[in-house]
Structure formats: C-alpha cells, structure tokens
Design a protein around this nucleic acid. Structure first.
Length: 213
DNA sequence: CTGTGGATTTGCT
DNA sequence: GCAAATCCACAGG
C-alpha cells in the first residue's frame, strides 16, 4: 500500500448514495492478496437507494424488500463491502453508505488498474499486456481481476487499514463526470444514478451523456 | 457491427 | 418456476 494513499473517513460515507457516488469517482479500491496489493481507481459507479427512500422508490435495489441473508450488510454501518453473486457466475462489489439502519449503497462498475496488473491479468486468464478495460471495466470483471468473492470479502470494513479490502484516497481530482441511467436493470430504469469519468477508457459501456457535473 | 444463448445462485411469486 | 445490478463465445450481415 503506497504512502500517500490516505484513509477515507467514515463520515464521508454516512451520506445518501446519490451524494456519495460521484465523490467515490477517483478514489481507490485496493485488495490484499497472496501476490500483493491489487488496486484500481474507481471510474464508474451506480447508486442504489435503501427502502426508506420513497420519493422516488428504488425497486431495482437488492434492499428494496427489506433484510435478507444476502443483503443484510447494506443495512449495517457505512463503509463496508456488499459482495453478491449474480447469474450463477459473477460477483459484484458495492460500498455501503448512509448511517446504520439505512441501506444505501454504491455498485462499483469500473476501475483503472493501478497496482498488481500482472496478477489481475492472471486472475482474468489474460496475458500481462492486456489493456486496462479488459482487466477491470465492468462490475463482474473487476471482481474477477481483484479476486473478490462473497465468502472472502462480503461485509469487510473498507475503512479499516488492517482490512483485506480497502477504500483509499490519493488526492486524485476528477474531471467531467457523466450522469446516465443505470445499466442492466428493468425497474426504475429512468433514474439518473450512474456516474462515470467522462471519456475514460475503463468505463464499462459508452452511453448517451445526459448531464455533466 | 448486431444479436443470441449459456453459465447456474438467490430470493420472490 | 423464473428473473436478475453479467459477461463471453459465436453466428450472421
């Protein structure tokens, strides 16, 4: 873990997901593995509301129908990892936000590789010279690259410097941010809750730009 | 470039 | 039973 990658304070995440999500862009997700630290800069995220939000409601959120065995970490303290298994094949990682009891969270959809590129390529079954987007563009892909699983990483505290999986800040300042509808959902498909660094190659899917911040 | 099918967990109906 | 916060291989134009 390089010096200068500062811890992110808990209060940063004790806020609603639509506010935290754009601020997560440019931050670093780092995973400690047998082959050292694997890390990437967050370039694309989506916000999901907890069930306490009714205007507008978010039926696309896993927390919409209340606590289940799968989603209970979202209802806990902010700054933890919610990792779920999807389509029988892939994992996706989220950052929980809002105070305890509220289930706001942010899906990480794209990273720019920063550390451990060789191990990421091996985890993905690609050669070491594979381009960034092949390694970490897409929510299932980036979990594969970092070796993230529900068994090993769900519920980890991302703000604890002893944790296997951490959120860090190297002071990177983002440029323009694209805001679009979320990808791959049917319910609440119109809400503008996807945030991405404009024109970044590791953004998973190019889409019509709706708004710029 | 576009479209389609398959991998097979989780939780709701 | 079935749809889902996915990705990839492969077919066809």
């Amino acid at each position: 873990m390089p010096a200068g990658w500062r811890r992110v304070p808990r209060r940063f995440l004790a806020e609603p997901p639509e506010k935290v999500a754009p601020q997560l862009l440019g931050k670093i997700l780092a995973s400690r593995t047998e082959s050292g630290w694997l890390a990437g800069r967050i370039v694309e995220v989506e916000a999901y509301f907890g069930p306490h939000v009714t205007d507008p409601p978010d039926p696309a959120a896993h927390s919409f129908r209340g606590v289940t065995d799968r989603n209970r970490v979202m209802f806990g303290a902010p700054g933890h990892a919610y990792v779920y298994f999807i389509y029988g094949m892939y994992y996706c990682v989220n950052v929980t936000c809002e105070p305890e009891g509220m289930a706001g969270c942010i899906l990480i959809r794209g990273l720019e590789p920063l550390l451990g590129r060789e191990a990421m390529a091996a985890n993905r079954g690609l050669s070491v010279d594979a381009p960034g987007p092949k390694l970490t563009a897409g929510p299932g892909i980036l979990c594969q690259a970092l070796g993230l699983t529900r068994a090993a990483h769900n519920g980890l505290d991302l703000l604890d410097p002893a944790s296997l999986l951490q959120l860090r800040d190297d002071g990177f300042k983002t440029g323009a941010i694209e805001i679009t509808p979320r990808i791959g959902i049917r319910l609440a498909a119109e809400l503008p809750l996807r945030f991405a660094l404009a024109r970044h190659p590791c953004v998973s899917h190019s889409r019509t730009k709706k708004t710029t911040m």
